[in-house]
Amino acid sequence: MPRTRASAPPGATEVSNVPFSGGVHAPGRARIAARTLREDRWWLQPFVTFVCFSAWLLYGLVRASLQRDYFVADYGYLTPFYSPCLSTSCVPGSTHFGTPFGEWPALIPFAALTLPFLLLFRLTCYYYRKAYYRSFWNSPPACAVPEAHREYSGETRFPLIMQNLHRYFFYAAVVISLINTYDVLHAFRGRDGGFGLGLGTLILLANVVLLWCYTLGCHSCRNIVGGRLNHFSKHPLRYKAWGLVGKLNARHMLFAWVTLGSLVVTDAYIALVSAGTIGDFRIIN
């Protein structure tokens, strides 16, 4: 009555005598040679993410080190990549917050003041973590696809345990977003110094709105405004705030991508106008 299954019956396509090793080949698990049987194009998404993130970083690096074409004096356009500009080395008019730093050292980009915080905010962001763990670190590249590393300790050890500092970069990002918002107010300016409105103003405005959507939709923010409570009913206002942040949070990935784009568009537009390559399309004054 007991039957052994020693040899492959006819119709078997793969006789599995896969040696046991790690991962899905660990002892006891079904011995299937292929490490993944996914047939769809699972590699596409991490690949696209990898390319886009790399391109963006490259663009950011180049722009930050240029140290020019970041301000359009006529209309008060200051690119977020150089905001706030706080030294006497900055182009006149771009120092919306004064010049507490005096002269700026030659080799350090102006952006060194804020860009690291913004980068760290995004680097420790829960969405970006998912995206780059998958696309840069292959841990894992896609679901049910084996990851590329033998050992794995997640975010339990240095340096990845530092991801837990996300909320501090969130606080910094809020401050920087406020600064960016103030910069937009400056962009409602005509050549004569009175009120004005151009395409650049609208781009800056749209960008800052999107930045707020991204920043406030942050998971840490969601926890701080209400998520940490166990009794929403006793804190109706915070519950409401938690709900609103939750709506943004559900689209956190979307805003993460859109703001990458909007930052580049804003910066590139201002760079082109500032360099005189194109003129600003004016609507009012």
Partner: peptide, 28 residues
């Protein structure tokens, strides 16, 4: 150990937002 790569949410047949609503809030 969780690095929030969200595969749990992707496969959940009940469409529970495991990562966004449980794991990340717990991390926070």
């Amino acid at each position: 150990y969780c690095n929030i790569t969200k595969c749990c949410t992707e496969v959940c047949p009940e469409h529970i937002k495991i990562t966004d609503n449980a794991l990340i809030p717990l991390k926070e």
